[in-house]
Design a protein around this nucleic acid. Structure first.
Length: 111
DNA sequence: GAGGTGACTGCGA
DNA sequence: CTCGCAGCCACCT
């Protein structure tokens, strides 16, 4: 558990995000204990495509549900399509009903 | 070994 | 209300 890199920890949490749900960098960072360092989570996502299996990075957005990392995908619209493909409504690079679709590991996994 | 970077966040003006 | 600044820490050059 301690041998894995910080990136892998992020990947595991992101992979736990249910389909049709989204989470934020700061929330994941806080869950990993690196709260305050949401940048690290986002930075880890930069190498998400190098992770195996693939990481649903499209389910991770900033705290307001904005698709800040869409430009890091192969195509800018790819992130939006992936989200909509899971039933998540996206408008103007922002997740609709983000507050309802929000997935917090500290709450959802506490059961 | 040191410096720079960044898919963020929160607070102040 | 909007805009700007500083903190945060792992990875890359």
């Amino acid at each position: 558990m301690e041998d894995i890199s910080f990136y892998d920890q992020v990947y595991q949490v992101v992979r736990l995000i249910p389909e049709g749900r989204v989470s934020s960098y700061g929330t994941i960072a806080s869950y990993l204990g690196t709260k305050g360092s949401a940048r690290m989570v986002g930075y880890a996502m930069n190498a998400a495509d190098t992770a195996h299996p693939t990481v649903p990075a499209h389910r991770v957005v900033n705290r307001i549900g904005l698709l800040t990392g869409k430009f890091h995908f192969n195509a800018e619209d790819l992130m939006k399509e992936l989200l909509e493909n899971e039933g998540i409504k996206v408008e103007n690079d922002q997740v609709k009903d983000f507050k309802k679709l929000f997935w917090d590991p500290a709450i959802e996994l506490q059961l």
